Simulated scan of single mutants.
Amino acid sequence: MFVLDRIEGDWAMVEYGKTMLQLPKTLLPENAKEGDILQIHISVNKEQTNNRKERLEEKARRLFD
């Protein structure tokens, strides 16, 4: 369970079990307030991952060719 503990400037302090996470406040819904339970979904964007990998491989090729 992710609990919005507090907001400090541009950062949201989120409690996750015994761990405190610091997230950019811009990731929160506009109406989020202290004590709210947050639902967080994380997924892999395979298309962007592959694009990044290709760009890095191209840079490495240019460096070593």
Rank of each mutant, 00 (worst) to 15 (best):
residue 31 N to K: 14
residue 6 R to L: 03
residue 6 R to T: 10
residue 63 L to A: 11
residue 40 I to S: 06
residue 59 K to F: 07
residue 6 R to G: 04
residue 63 L to F: 03
residue 8 E to L: 08
residue 64 F to Y: 07
residue 53 K to H: 08
residue 53 K to M: 10
residue 23 L to E: 03
residue 27 L to Q: 14
residue 29 P to E: 09
residue 31 N to F: 07
residue 61 R to S: 09
residue 7 I to K: 00
residue 65 D to A: 08
residue 14 V to K: 01
residue 19 T to A: 09
residue 1 M to V: 09
residue 18 K to E: 14
residue 28 L to C: 04
residue 51 N to M: 09
residue 9 G to L: 01
residue 6 R to F: 05
residue 34 E to T: 11
residue 42 I to K: 12
residue 65 D to I: 05
residue 32 A to C: 05
residue 45 N to E: 12
residue 18 K to C: 00
residue 45 N to L: 05
residue 56 L to F: 06
residue 28 L to V: 06
residue 8 E to M: 05
residue 38 L to A: 05
residue 8 E to D: 14
residue 36 D to W: 01
residue 16 Y to E: 13
residue 46 K to V: 12
residue 25 K to H: 11
residue 35 G to D: 04
residue 41 H to I: 13
residue 61 R to T: 05
residue 7 I to P: 01
residue 46 K to A: 13
residue 12 A to P: 02
residue 8 E to T: 06
residue 49 T to I: 06
residue 22 Q to F: 14
residue 60 A to P: 00
residue 62 R to D: 04
residue 60 A to E: 12
residue 43 S to A: 15
residue 23 L to C: 05
residue 39 Q to W: 09
residue 47 E to K: 15
residue 20 M to T: 13
residue 23 L to D: 03
residue 9 G to Y: 01
residue 22 Q to G: 08
residue 54 E to Y: 07
residue 6 R to W: 04
residue 44 V to I: 15
residue 11 W to A: 03
residue 10 D to W: 05
residue 42 I to C: 14
residue 44 V to G: 07
residue 56 L to K: 12
residue 16 Y to C: 11
residue 37 I to P: 00
residue 60 A to H: 08
residue 64 F to K: 11
residue 44 V to P: 06
residue 11 W to C: 00
residue 8 E to H: 07
residue 57 E to M: 10
residue 26 T to M: 14
residue 54 E to A: 14
residue 60 A to S: 09
residue 23 L to I: 15
residue 5 D to V: 04
residue 24 P to N: 03
residue 45 N to Q: 09
residue 62 R to A: 10
residue 33 K to M: 07
residue 40 I to E: 10
residue 18 K to F: 08
residue 34 E to A: 15
residue 11 W to S: 06
residue 20 M to E: 13
residue 36 D to S: 04
residue 23 L to P: 04
residue 54 E to V: 04
residue 61 R to Y: 10
residue 14 V to R: 02
residue 50 N to M: 11
residue 63 L to W: 01
